[in-house]
Nucleic acid binder design. Structure first.
Lengths: 240, 240
DNA sequence: CGCAATATTGACCATCATCAATTGGCGTGG
DNA sequence: CCACGCCAATTGATGATGGTCAATATTGCG
């Protein structure tokens, strides 16, 4: 419990610091936040479209995703989230969720009531800017996904997704040797890149055949990072 | 000039009010902002990917769009902007643009230096929340586009785009009788929905044949709004 | 009137979706 | 330890959606 609490503020600070410099006062204000810890099983929803929330959530451990369901049952995943990510900052300022958030793996979450956040922000107005900034980085990721879905071929799309996840996991220390835990089903990937599961399968085979990746049993390795980046037309500037 | 200045704060207030209630003090703080007015011809860039800015821009008149260019020359438009939209709030908190913004029609812009904005926010911290909120609505629009590009057929995608534009134009009083000025080329639409120009052309013909829209000479009319919404699977909740 | 940009059309083809069946991995209960 | 069942991955076959290329028509505009 204590170690989880420790990693909560540590993760959050690391996250905010990766996109702007956090002052000592801000840092200690963050440390005084007392999150409620929660767990989620794999494939459980944290929030559903249409709901109202009175707290924000930081992902401490595990993978989560944002998605929308269409009337015909199709799903579009719009983002994957990794430890340190703030999951529903939107709810702090807009009452009603316009999409759902669910876990992918068993996850641990830290929950902070809006009210507590308001307090921190009024004492440390600079902190609000940091959180705002993180929502802008999220938006940049959405835009980059749009480019991928709209204008890249299957091969490139999946390569790009893998590049993004590796870089983001690096930034929170969860990647070594271009290897990350990535327990996604092929259907999850399909819903993220806007393709069918079958075609994801074939494209993965092609990526493997070209010795760009290893991807089995929930572990992804970029075997040739430079060539993977080229294949995915990946340029990490957008990540901050 | 005066009338433009008038409409500047009026537009901005209307914009912010459409997503949250603006107090009297905030309103008058906004009115004291002195924007520099600028004009842009059609198809000119306001900012390019990689640039740094020291001011934000509000679109007063005309259409603009955000886009990225790929190495192979393909373009993905990620958003259209209409009068009242804040074009590059991102630059206020993140130094470097990760995409470009260009005009579509001849446009009029109001420019506010970051410094001035900082001042206003420190006097009226609530205003920062309003601007933040507007960036969150932008992100919601990105997400909805992703769903369209990833999971909807051509017909539905274009219908959805038209629905969105009509509703947004309504909210700033630029739509009557489901008719808006929309001087987009078919290739602009193609770059926005992730299709080829040829296929946009054929899909538009289909939309016309089904009596859902009229779209000629830069004017779009939804001839059967309910059916157009159904065709586009359009649910305007995400817009706020 | 004539040029340039945009829209339209036709023919052909690539990418990717769909459907259906099979295989493989893995945990559970007997 | 094996059989069963479930879920995910894989494969094959077929076809639809939408891309590409190239020619022609139309429109806007100086």
């Amino acid at each position: 419990m204590t170690s989880a609490l420790h990693s909560f503020s540590e993760l959050l600070i690391r996250k905010l610091e990766s996109i702007g410099s956090v002052s000592e006062a801000e840092r200690s204000a963050l440390c005084r936040l007392q999150p409620t810890l929660t767990c989620l099983n794999a494939h459980e929803d944290l929030v559903r479209e249409g709901e109202r929330l009175d707290s924000i959530t930081v992902l401490i451990q595990g993978y989560a995703c944002r998605y929308k369901l269409l009337a015909d049952g199709k799903r579009q995943i719009m983002a994957f989230h990794i430890p340190g990510d703030i999951l529903d900052m939107r709810s702090f300022l807009l009452p009603r969720m316009d999409h759902s958030i669910g876990s992918i793996t068993p996850s641990q979450l830290g929950v902070i009531p809006h009210a507590a956040l308001h307090d921190v922000f009024s004492n440390q107005p600079g902190l609000a800017y940091h959180f705002w900034r993180s929502t802008l980085v999220d938006a940049a990721i959405f835009r980059e996904w749009m480019v991928g879905i709209g204008r890249r071929l299957a091969f490139s799309r999946i390569a790009h997704l893998f590049c993004e996840l590796i870089v983001r996991m690096q930034s929170v220390g969860l990647c070594s040797d271009y290897t990350i835990e990535l327990p996604l089903r092929q259907s999850d990937i399909a819903d993220a890149v806007g393709m069918s599961t079958v075609h994801v399968n074939r494209t993965l085979q092609e990526l493997r055949k070209q010795k760009l990746i290893k991807f089995t049993r929930g572990t992804l390795t970029a075997m040739d990072w430079p060539r993977l980046c080229v294949a995915g037309q990946f340029d990490e500037i957008y990540l901050h």
